[in-house]
Simulated scan of single mutants.
Amino acid sequence: MSLHAETVHVTRVTPVPRESASCRASPPADAHPRQSASAALAAWLSGHEFPDVHSRGIGGVTPLMLAALHGEDSLVDALLDAGARFGALDDEGNHALWYACLAGAPAPILRLIEAGIEIDHANDHDITCLMQAAASGRVEVMHLLLSLGASEGLYAPDGRDALDMAADRGFELLRTARRLGDAKPGAQGIEAGRAAIAADAFTDKAA
């Protein structure tokens, strides 16, 4: 019997180098801060009894409106990132910028306007954010809104524009200051000053 040489086929296996720890895929650099921000937002929503970023509280106030009212820019940012609708309106027809202007903090005002919120939106009483700032004597908010493109040529139902309201507010403050200056010193003068301030505050509410 003849011997035949057997042909042995050897499958060559290419060794796969073990992946080093330094070469492993790592999460994005901002993953942890985003997770922390999401957790903080969830805790804030829960603490204020909002089921989600789109929910509404008393008076139709949304989480974004409340964060803007408190001047909490980081929360405003987190809510916008989470999809909060900046154009949502409360029961009076005000959106989040109105609340940011009440707070007077520049950062949330800038953030909301950069997000695309309507700067000249008028609420159900046909009052804009600029008018609100003017009527309340918030000169710094007026300046910021005007610098960002707010229109001073819009009119309230009583025919006044924002500059008229600012002028009227200035005259009211001057009248109050004059009353306080004319008041007698001592306890009697203090009481007279308080009465003058209270009278002006009542006039503001009535208006």
Score class of each variant (00 low, 15 high):
residue 102 L to F: 05
residue 58 I to C: 12
residue 147 S to A: 04
residue 116 G to W: 00
residue 120 D to V: 04
residue 70 H to I: 02
residue 43 A to H: 10
residue 89 L to F: 05
residue 80 L to D: 10
residue 55 S to F: 10
residue 122 A to W: 04
residue 74 S to D: 15
residue 50 F to N: 01
residue 67 A to V: 07
residue 113 I to S: 00
residue 82 A to S: 08
residue 42 A to L: 07
residue 147 S to E: 13
residue 42 A to F: 13
residue 124 D to C: 14
residue 135 A to W: 07
residue 63 P to M: 08
residue 35 Q to E: 11
residue 55 S to P: 14
residue 55 S to A: 12
residue 42 A to E: 02
residue 86 F to P: 00
residue 94 N to H: 07
residue 102 L to D: 03
residue 42 A to N: 05
residue 95 H to N: 13
residue 145 L to R: 07
residue 84 A to L: 07
residue 147 S to W: 01
residue 129 C to P: 15
residue 48 H to V: 13
residue 131 M to K: 13
residue 147 S to M: 02
residue 136 S to C: 10
residue 87 G to R: 08
residue 102 L to V: 06
residue 109 I to L: 03
residue 132 Q to N: 15
residue 81 D to H: 14
residue 36 S to M: 10
residue 41 L to F: 13
residue 120 D to C: 01
residue 90 D to Q: 12
residue 55 S to Q: 08
residue 138 R to D: 00
residue 93 G to Y: 08
residue 49 E to H: 12
residue 48 H to P: 15
residue 104 G to M: 03
residue 79 L to R: 13
residue 148 L to G: 01
residue 91 D to I: 08
residue 106 P to A: 06
residue 106 P to H: 06
residue 113 I to H: 00
residue 76 V to E: 03
residue 85 R to G: 02
residue 137 G to T: 06
residue 40 A to R: 07
residue 48 H to I: 14
residue 73 D to S: 04
residue 35 Q to R: 05
residue 135 A to E: 10
residue 122 A to L: 11
residue 86 F to K: 00
residue 89 L to R: 07
residue 58 I to L: 14
residue 92 E to H: 15
residue 112 L to V: 03
residue 101 C to Q: 03
residue 35 Q to C: 05
residue 59 G to F: 08
residue 83 G to K: 09
residue 143 H to Q: 03
residue 57 G to K: 06
residue 92 E to R: 15
residue 75 L to S: 00
residue 84 A to P: 07
residue 39 A to K: 15
residue 126 D to R: 15
residue 126 D to S: 14
residue 87 G to F: 00
residue 136 S to R: 02
residue 47 G to Q: 09
residue 128 T to N: 11
residue 88 A to E: 01
residue 84 A to D: 02
residue 49 E to T: 14
residue 98 W to C: 13
residue 112 L to Q: 02
residue 66 L to K: 05
residue 64 L to S: 06
residue 51 P to E: 09
residue 101 C to V: 01
residue 119 I to W: 00
residue 143 H to W: 01
residue 58 I to W: 11
residue 132 Q to R: 14
residue 134 A to G: 11
residue 91 D to R: 08
residue 36 S to P: 00
residue 67 A to W: 05
residue 122 A to N: 08
residue 41 L to M: 10
residue 95 H to Y: 09
residue 137 G to M: 06
residue 82 A to C: 07
residue 68 A to K: 03
residue 82 A to Y: 09
residue 95 H to E: 15
residue 139 V to C: 04
residue 60 G to F: 10
